[in-house]
Amino acid sequence: MKLLTHNMLTSKCMKGVSVGYPLGINASDVRVSEVDFNPDFIARMIPKLDWAVLYNAAESIGQLEDLPKDLANNYENDQEFLKKVHHVLLEVDIINGELVCPETGRKFPINNGIPNMLLNEDEV
């Protein structure tokens, strides 16, 4: 699971959860692999992200490298910056671990890179 995906997920649909965002991450196996860089795509994605959530998520799994805490101005033309964002969004992959609901502590296992967001029948 990529940090881009993590940025887009919430456990709000669960009973008794009011925000459910951001989900916690416990990563036991993280893989970093090179992915083709598409600066236009990254520049288009940035406004859709919750930057603080991305920053904290990267930090929590030790993949922060030198990502700035605050979003740079005029980032569309800053190739170096876009590359860093590209790295945390698309090149860092959580292979095994779990996502954790911030309110209930419910854990969602990640196996083989695929998060399992299924609730049990007594939770729906």
Binding site: M1, L4, T5, M8, L9, T10, P115, M117, L118, L119
Partner: peptide
Amino acid sequence: EHRYLDVLVNDFAMQFWREGC
């Protein structure tokens, strides 16, 4: 592969996508 983001095991009746996504 560079355009593969993720797949999730998810019940469509229970949405985990964030509000503004």
